[in-house]
Design a protein around this nucleic acid. Structure first.
Lengths: 340, 340
DNA sequence: CTGAAAGCGCTAACAA
DNA sequence: TTGTTAGCGCTTTCAG
């Protein structure tokens, strides 16, 4: 409980008065810009600290036409994978003086548009956003912003400026290859029913195409609404196997529901990976201590975040063609037979 | 790949020229402020849209001395619990026009100070930050900022302005009570060794005090460094039981390592909750699909976020005394004997 | 190395 | 209902 909460925020002028140095020189000291004599510097710093002066970046940004903010726009914070991307971004931004500002779209294109509008109105020095699918207005805003725009996670599409990610289509194709060469033939898919989750959609498309090419069409599919959880994975696995008991493999659209399915199948005493194989997607290390490891694809989230941040920060140049393609990495775990 | 990325951001003046309406009136239309005739409004909106004008909040904020930003400062994004608090904050802020800006401290007081300095320099209209322990300089900055400051998660201490949270001391005391009345007497504790995790520290203090008061001192303790994971929980559980095989209860400082311990103990064929009882802390619903539910305490994260946001947004008044105490809620799960 | 003047793009306050 | 004027608190630019 503080007795006197104050009246007026301090300005440069207050520091100038207190130190007997011009506002301009105070400003120089506080930003480490230009040459200032050690004596003056000392005087200013002492005064600023004593007053508890905090610079006003609103005014500074207006005057300098530069703002050390990077807008980061992601679909969700509860999805586990996005905080990890943020980790990569934030780690790489740390030594640049740039600060990430996070906006969440809840997978809604209209919401994304609103968030972008809001963030661009702060004139950030760059934008990092998830995915390649945006409303026309969003694209237009980003193109008109005149700042680096990095679209992350996905590279199957046409980037506005630069894209950093993996091909989810390829991830699906490769997973199909591993499953087929392990000898599984009655394959089911369990995924979320979100038309706006383009990456899951592309994965499934690649997966199915590869299966079809091998003459092994997808035998069953089960969709769910809403967020992913272990419980949802259990439930859906039970349901799909009740309907199609002879499935010998289940491909889940993410690790969390995959792990749920795995736990359920083990409780049922199903032989894994012999009788039934399982695979998820993402490579979340949260699940590492489970009794057996789920096969999955590492989506390279951390590195995606880092590379995107490096481009926005100007540490890396924008690549020719504007696309940085990372390779999705298959992690066999213990839930898929060793190919033979 | 866009051919012509533009030169100069548009200003109100551009919209004014394009619509033949004064800058001031354009500004009114774009902010829905004051009375503007439908005809004029229409003209302005059309022009603004056609140009793709995005207002400059830097200039607006400077002119109006108000900024629709709320600084949210948390220790970590990978901890699962903080994204959930953010969810509550963001949900409650959604209809207020206020936007959260997130800063991460990695549990470092110096880092917190730097983040606060940076955020306050944007003159946000409020601050929400985790915990009651801050550096002197941080406290001074916050007190001098002259804006609502809500410290969340914890109420065991002296708030700067307002605190919303649970008493972690009480959570520890209550858990001790449940364990003791269930008849467990050889109790061990497994927790992180982070001097800066004040909430875990307070929980343990309350827990131990209550045990001692009952004449049942803590029989063993095991600490770990770094982040929490299922794997870490397994490892520590194995270690503490190797050292003290006759422990009949383990209290973990969070659900994730608790779940790891639970998985390990089941693999060993240990009778739970008969031979060994287990409890965690947080009430994370991520783990809901595990074979058996871990006993835990719901830390009321979502509501903490909501209440904090309501205060900053002015929807709720600051309470007398400045403290909103929510009750930590015991969730018995399946890993503690039914009291008898 | 230091200071003075001008103005960033917008909005509060007032006038018409 | 609309327009005019004067800054918001800084930094750029240029002069000393």
């Amino acid at each position: 409980m503080n007795p006197n909460r104050p009246r007026r925020p301090l300005t440069l002028r207050d520091v100038s008065l207190a130190s007997g140095v011009s506002e301009m020189t105070v400003s120089r000291v506080l930003r480490n810009r230009g040459d200032v004599s050690p004596a003056t510097r000392e005087k200013v710093q002492t005064a600023a600290r004593a007053l508890g002066y905090v610079p006003n970046k609103i005014a500074g940004g207006l005057a300098s036409q530069r703002v050390n903010l990077v807008a980061v726009v992601i679909p969700s914070l509860s999805n586990l994978v996005f905080p990890e991307v943020l980790g990569g971004i934030s780690a790489e931004l740390d030594d640049t003086g740039l600060q990430p500002v996070i906006g969440v779209t809840h997978y809604g294109p209209a919401r994304e548009e609103a968030v972008l509008y809001d963030m661009l109105s702060w004139r950030p020095s760059g934008v990092i956003l998830a995915g390649l699918e945006h409303s026309r207005a969003s694209r237009a805003m980003l193109e008109a912003a005149g700042i680096p725009v990095v679209e992350i996670m996905d590279i199957d599409g046409d980037p506005i400026d630069t894209a950093v990610g993996i091909s989810h289509d390829r991830a699906g194709v490769e997973m199909a290859g591993h499953i087929l060469s392990a000898g599984y033939r009655r394959i089911g898919f369990i995924g979320t029913h979100m038309p706006e989750d383009h990456r899951a959609r592309k994965r499934l498309a690649g997966f199915e195409r590869a299966l079809n090419a091998a003459g092994v069409p997808l035998a069953a599919r089960e969709y769910y609404q809403g967020g992913s959880s272990l419980g949802k994975g259990r439930e859906l696995t039970e349901r799909i196997l009740a309907r199609e008991p002879d499935l010998d493999f289940l491909y889940f659209s993410n690790d969390l529901i995959g792990a749920g399915g795995l736990i359920w199948a083990r409780e049922q005493g199903i032989d894994i990976p012999g009788r039934l194989g399982l695979a998820g997607f993402n490579g979340v290390d949260l699940l590492d201590g489970l009794p057996i490891r789920l096969a999955t694809t590492d989506a390279r989230r951390l590195e995606i975040g880092r590379r995107a941040a490096r481009i926005v920060a100007g540490k890396d140049a924008r690549p020719d063609g504007g696309v940085i393609a990372l390779a999705p990495t298959f992690l066999p775990g213990d839930t898929i037979r060793v190919a033979g």
